[in-house]
Design a protein around this nucleic acid. Structure first.
Lengths: 153, 153
DNA sequence: TTTTTTGCAAAACCTTTGCAGTTGG
DNA sequence: CCAACTGCAAAGGTTTTGCAAAAAA
């Protein structure tokens, strides 16, 4: 979960494309690395390193999952987000066109097209001069249901 | 750093008011607790538990700082935010009218009046049905200076 | 006195690192 | 073959917990 300069996203939609990207970078498609990529492709949503390792049936221990996630993130194939106080969640950069919203009451996590938040980004820029990014620290708040609950007495 | 239901903010501007709030809640104004409150009042901006403990010259060890921050947060006097990958930062709820923006490139943290982000919140609500809150996970992105840098080749 | 709070020690939790051995290309 | 990668073990940084001793009211 390096903080370092984020590489431009490298979108892949299947294992073959991922394998090509790995080899193009001079990397090797090891058992552990393939397993992590398969897990991410299968998940289709942000998952923790532990969830990945658990689903790997021993093909790679947690530490190797972390090392591969880091390496793949440096390559631009993987991104991670921070949701509440829990562990970091990882996803393929292929899904980069989505951004997430997290409900702090019920824990729900919704995905929206990144462009849907462009107007919000523009308002933040007008108000504070910041180019907001929601792809690392998603928007936290209350989902429609929970917002309704706290509005009603 | 309990996640639990956030209490309504309890704004205090000096130690006396804080002491009253503590006693009104049936708590005691111990040396450690007073020291933590003084540190927060003096800081006037979000600081880590470790920074607080370091400035206390032994009046309370880190573990007591954490316990008091938790207790004070449950009471509504203190809030914490998450900035990047670092430790949580604590501040008095009195400063709740400010929200923060964090630059992921240079680490700068700017405070803005919370109302300045109301339009952005409205846009997020329109786009995703979420009532966004920036008071726990601040807006992350690029400050004006760093955004300019990455725009220029 | 009585209940709260302290502070040490130890653990929990997530993530990273050192290093010797393994493996993909 | 040999650099890249693994996996164990051990550590890192942050936060929490158990518990007996101390202190506020």
């Amino acid at each position: 979960m390096t903080v370092a300069p984020r590489r431009p996203p490298l979108a892949v939609s299947d294992l073959d494309e991922a394998a090509d990207a790995v080899r193009a970078a001079g990397g090797r498609l090891t058992t552990a690395r393939r397993a992590v990529l398969e897990a991410l492709l299968a998940a289709g949503r942000p998952v923790s390193a532990e969830q990945i390792a658990d689903g790997l049936a021993g093909r790679a221990p947690l530490v190797s999952v972390y090392r591969n996630l880091d390496w793949l993130e440096e390559l631009g194939l993987v991104r991670h987000i921070h949701v509440g106080h829990g562990a970091g969640l990882y996803r393929l950069a292929a899904e980069a066109e989505f951004e997430y919203l997290v409900c702090e009451r019920c824990g729900a996590m919704s995905a929206v097209d990144a462009r849907a938040l462009d107007r919000a980004r523009a308002e933040i820029f007008k108000a504070a001069g910041y180019e907001a990014r929601f792809d690392h620290f998603p928007v936290h708040g209350l989902c429609a249901g929970c917002a309704g609950l706290s509005a009603a007495p």
